[in-house]
């Protein structure tokens, strides 16, 4: 990935899981409205926020993510009616659990972004990237083998 020969300013790798119906469309709208969000946010489109298995989040950390954000439709607006309600429970438990294991609470986040909220998408991403930048590199939930040679 990046080749750090001299110490550069830290730019975090962010993975954003976006549901197809709301948040991904929101990201699209942000793009077409020329609202910027940081380039280090890598979006992964998922059919529904509840498709995101905790192992996806951990896998992202393994591969070098410094922060993971999960975006879905606002509760009550799920395309599949109830998907995001399950997401909400799962992620509440998972985040609390990760923190229990000593992983920084702020590294993982859930945001609800509708298809009409291009501006909100941009704001959420900017804010998240800033928080993760302040938090620094992910060192506690990372696979050293992946980063070897960097």
């Amino acid at each position: 990935m990046q080749n750090v020969t001299e110490k550069k300013e830290f730019t975090p790798n962010i993975v954003a899981f976006c549901c197809n119906w709301c948040s991904y469309a929101g990201a699209d709208l942000a793009g077409s409205s020329r609202l910027s969000y940081p380039a280090n946010v890598k979006i992964i489109r998922v059919p529904c926020s509840c498709r995101v298995n905790p192992s996806f989040i951990l896998k992202a950390y393994q591969q070098g993510a410094d922060g993971v954000i999960l975006c879905g439709c606002h509760p009550g607006d799920c395309h599949y009616v109830t998907g995001n309600y399950y997401t909400r429970r799962r992620m509440s438990l998972l985040f609390s659990f990760l923190n229990y294991m000593g992983i920084e609470k702020e590294r993982t986040r859930v945001e609800w972004v509708s298809a009409a909220e291009g501006a909100r998408f941009s704001a959420v991403m900017n804010d998240f990237v800033q928080k993760i930048t302040e938090l620094g590199e992910n060192k506690r939930l990372t696979d050293l083998r992946v980063k070897e040679g960097e």
Binding site: M1, G64, R145, K147, E150
Partner: peptide, 9 residues
């Protein structure tokens, strides 16, 4: 085999 950012271990 394990895939890293650099290659395969």
């Amino acid at each position: 085999d394990f895939k890293t950012n650099e290659g395969v271990i």
